[in-house]
Design a protein around this nucleic acid. Structure first.
Length: 473
DNA sequence: ATGTAC
């Protein structure tokens, strides 16, 4: 890798010319070090070999290896040269994302109150592997949900129409539920309004620092404010859609730089079907977060009132995805170019100029960067430089440092819960093993991750959140 | 990430 600036590196096009464009990674020395120990850079070079790729294959500071395409990876493919779509470039959890609800009150609640409030919240949230749903839809309304996303959740009584203005894509992408397999649908129908497992969580937090005060004020953020964060995705439905289409695309001869990077032209019948099915899974995920956000924030308000006699209502600040491929227009070599931008473990970070006609026309939209369990989270906004340099993209979290297996080997879950409680953080897990896999030691330092992007002028840090309680899937 | 495999 060649260093371009204090926070960026380039892997130039290789002599064999298999890479069509360079790969570019955002990191300082400390975040760059673990990249030598996994396949993330090799995977990024494979992405750079895909036909129609524009400018560079990009790696965010939280990059680590994934299925075919690294998590923390961004790649845009020109629709003028055909353009391709790859399920591996989106990931198995289609439209995994984060929703943040901001409370109307600041509060300094004692830990025993937080514990009781959290227990009430946890009791209302289906989580962990397998079935469990806040609402089981009938087939007809479930189909409607797959084509209309968060709007259907609102019509079913979860939240308000105004919430849709605070969801990316207004909580809905153009989908066709007829290209979703019956098996995928079955899996989704029994999991509508559920958190899932792995790194998915609910977090009660509070605003602990304001950096860009003007923007924070515009977004209604204030010091000490209670928050509720929801991190989850499309559950078994998205997983099944991804498996179905990876298998279908792998039937073609390629050539693929890696079988896990199987792709299809976006305008082919297979490509169009995948996009329509991916969007149906994305709509399910938007609805899933709408249902969880609306019902759990209501439960949280009620619990805070009953346990602490404090009025605290929650309103949606934003809902942002970090696993999607979408059609977007970007300026490339002074020309507007329609592309399909894949972001896997990476978010959009559109500044004001790209948010005209929305609630964030003056500021750009918020980007949520949750840290690992027990560490701070950040709220960022994108910049014009980021729009030009990364297709308006940003990191999505701390980034895994240890494999799940290695984390399990090193971490004692009981000890972990005790340590976090001593730090003043209540933890409720569904499985001890899941907790160990998500231990803070298994992740990079989220503050360093966001600092790199700010240092490169790709994002502005607006606020920091401290965790009070975590409910793990 | 995931009813943790074809």
């Amino acid at each position: 890798m060649r260093r371009l600036s204090p926070g960026s590196w380039e892997i130039p096009v290789t002599a064999d010319r298999r890479m069509k464009v360079p790969a570019r990674v955002y990191a300082d020395e400390i975040l760059a070090a673990p990249m030598a120990g996994d396949r993330s850079l090799e995977q990024l070079m494979n992405v750079a070999m895909l036909p129609g790729i524009v400018d560079a294959a990009l790696g965010m500071p939280d990059i680590h290896q994934g299925y075919g395409f690294p998590i923390g990876g961004v790649a845009a493919f020109s629709l003028e040269d055909g353009g391709l779509v790859s399920p591996g470039g989106v990931g198995y959890d289609i439209n995994c994302g984060v929703r943040l609800l901001a409370g109307s009150s600041a509060a300094d609640l004692p830990q025993d109150i937080i514990r009781r409030v959290t227990a009430r919240l946890a009791a209302r949230c289906p989580r962990g592997g397998g079935k469990g749903a806040i609402k089981i839809f009938k087939e007809k309304s479930f189909r409607r949900l797959m084509s209309r996303g968060a709007e259907t959740a609102v019509e079913e009584g979860f939240g308000t129409r105004a919430d849709l203005d605070y969801c990316e894509d207004h909580g809905r992408l153009p989908a066709d539920e007829d290209v979703v397999s019956p098996r995928a649908m079955e899996r989704g129908i029994s999991e509508t309004g559920s958190l899932g497992g792995g790194n998915h969580f609910l977090e009660i937090g509070k605003v602990s620092a304001l950096y860009d005060e003007k923007t924070a004020r515009r977004w209604g953020l204030f010091q000490g404010q209670l928050t509720l964060m929801v991190h989850c995705g499309s559950r078994g439905l998205g997983h099944q859609v991804c498996s179905d289409y990876v298998r279908l695309f792998q039937q073609e001869k390629g050539p693929f730089p890696d079988r896990e990077l199987a792709w299809a032209p976006a305008d082919s019948s297979r490509g169009r079907s995948y996009i329509a099915a991916m969007n149906a899974a994305a709509n399910f995920a938007y609805a899933n977060r709408q249902i969880l956000g609306a019902s759990l924030s209501e439960a949280l308000s009620q619990a805070i009132w009953e346990e602490a006699r404090l009025h605290c209502d929650f309103r949606l600040l934003y809902d942002i995805t970090h696993n999607m491929a979408r059609r977007e227009v970007h300026m490339v070599s002074g020309k507007e170019l329609p592309c399909i931008v894949h972001r896997k473990g990476a978010t959009r970070a559109f500044p004001a100029s790209h948010m005209k006609g929305t609630a964030f026309a003056e500021t750009g939209h918020p980007v949520f960067v949750p840290g690992s369990m027990g560490s701070s989270s950040y709220i960022l906004r994108g910049t014009e430089k980021g729009l030009a340099e990364t297709f308006g993209s940003c990191c999505h979290g701390a980034g895994r440092l240890l494999s799940r297996r290695e984390a399990l080997r090193r971490v004692d879950p009981g000890q972990l819960v005790k340590t976090l409680e001593r730090e003043g953080i209540v933890v409720m897990g569904s499985a001890p093993r899941g907790l160990a896999e998500e231990a803070p030691q298994a992740y990079k330092d989220v503050s360093r991750v966001v600092s790199v992007l700010e240092g490169e002028g790709l994002a502005v840090i607006v606020a920091r959140l401290e965790p009070l309680a975590v409910v793990k899937g």
